[in-house]
């Protein structure tokens, strides 16, 4: 684990990334890097390109150009199903729980991509609700439970780079708090996390750095210790 904790290993490096859906040009030259063990957020208004950035990493957009290095491997031009095997776990905004699979089948669906993932027992210990409802159809769970399931699903695979899209959206404060605790535990384990988040007050105390996006570009990079002085700028961009 000790080598995983090193903060100077580049887990993700994106250079001059452009992404397109059909004719529309969504991302205009993104540059960012995330080191191993860091928790980095993508902040911005709706439609600023944060989710598209995550989907581009997974090759889920129409077309992408530029460079996306994951754990030292170039992934532009790689088929979508090979990217997770580099150690990437993706939690989509709509959660993506499969209705025709029960909770346990949902959990066991993604193949193991690296060793060192959580076991089923550890996951049920972290999310006891999922154990109680393991035989229910995935979409019968409450919104919060579905979010736990969507997170737990990628923790089992051993992925060490987690891409989490709006995981607190529409959830009750007490569940948001639980998710915050989960993220801290994952950070302690040395996992690298890229978090797309609308809820700035949730993200601020957890993150090491923030990227601020606007119109498909990164307009500002803010380290967590600069947060105070750049609050005005942030308010302008986020419109809070």
């Amino acid at each position: 684990m000790s080598s995983d904790m090193k903060k100077d290993i580049e887990q993700l490096r994106i250079a001059d990334l452009h992404a397109f859906y059909g004719e529309s040009h969504i991302l205009h030259g993104i540059d960012m890097k995330v080191n191993r063990g860091e928790l980095v957020t993508l902040l911005g208004r709706n439609g600023s390109g944060r989710s598209t950035t995550l989907k581009s990493i997974m090759n889920m957009v129409g077309k992408r150009t530029g460079s996306i290095m994951v754990n030292g491997n170039e992934t532009v031009g790689m088929p979508a199903h090979q990217i997770p095997h580099l150690g990437v776990g993706f939690c989509p905004e709509e959660r993506g729980i499969f209705a025709s699979l029960n909770v346990e089948e949902n959990l066991m669906l993604p193949p193991t991509v690296r060793s060192g993932g959580m076991t089923l027992d550890e996951i049920y210990e972290m999310f006891p609700n999922l154990y109680e409802r393991r035989m229910s159809p995935g979409t019968r769970l409450s919104g919060g439970e579905q979010q736990m399931l969507a997170m737990a699903r990628i923790l089992r695979t051993g992925a060490n780079l987690l891409l989490l899209d709006e995981i607190t959206e529409g959830l009750a404060p007490v569940i948001v708090q639980t998710l915050g605790e989960v993220l801290l535990k994952l950070k302690d384990k040395g996992l690298t996390i890229v978090l797309v988040e609308q809820n700035f007050r949730f993200a601020a105390p957890l993150a090491d750095r923030h990227y601020l996006m606007e119109h498909g570009s990164i307009v500002e990079e803010i380290a967590s210790n600069e947060l105070e002085e750049k609050m005005d700028l942030l308010n302008t961009y986020l419109g809070v």
Binding site: M60, A80, I83, S100, L101, L109, T157
Partner: peptide, 15 residues
């Protein structure tokens, strides 16, 4: 079953 529901996401899990 998962592929019938959402093939793109199944692909994003490495299938």
């Amino acid at each position: 079953r998962a592929g019938t529901e959402n093939p793109q996401l199944l692909q994003a899990f490495g299938i």
